[in-house]
């Protein structure tokens, strides 16, 4: 694989990871807004009240969609079992921002922090081992 192609693959991987975390957080803010105005606003199609909820949700889903397209480019170059675990980085991003950002301010507990770290350790172990041979193209 040429250096340029590898750089492109890494850029796609980084884009995918950051946007997938941002998408989760924006979708959660959207659902919080929906919770705030009440789900009845959906039934009565109160678009003014639904504005913030819909905006955040659409932004979140769009970020998620773009992260998926970048992911497709990554998958064209790497085995799934190699590429997928790198998404583990996004667990750290989501956890850090969800608990530290005032818009969400989710409670963190030692159990949840430790569990999340185990998840990250697991996905790093899955991705760092096995020395997968790159496709020879």
């Amino acid at each position: 694989m040429s250096t340029g192609a590898r750089g492109f693959g890494l850029a796609a991987l980084a884009t995918s990871i950051v946007l997938s975390a941002a998408g989760q957080l924006a979708m959660k803010v959207g659902m919080r807004e929906l919770h705030r105005v009440g789900i009845g606003a959906l039934a009565s199609a109160d678009w003014v009240a639904l504005g913030p909820a819909l905006s955040w949700t659409i932004v979140g889903v769009a970020a998620y969609a773009v992260s998926m397209l970048a992911w497709l480019l990554v998958l064209a170059r790497h085995p799934l079992s190699y590429a997928y675990p790198f998404l583990g980085v996004s667990y750290v991003l989501v956890y850090a921002v969800a608990t530290q950002w005032s818009a969400l301010a989710e409670p963190s507990s030692p159990l949840r922090t430790f569990g999340t770290l185990l998840v990250v350790a697991g996905v790093v172990l899955v991705s760092a081992t096995g020395a997968h041979r790159q496709p020879t193209s």
Binding site: V119, A121, V123, V126, G130
Partner: peptide
């Protein structure tokens, strides 16, 4: 049909334990 090494299965077990802890939190 991809090959999955024992270490990767070990990683999957860590993920499973982490998921169980987060679910209990």
């Amino acid at each position: 049909g991809e090959r999955v090494s024992p270490a990767r299965w070990g990683g999957a077990i860590l993920v499973a334990i982490g998921v169980a802890l987060v679910a209990a939190s």
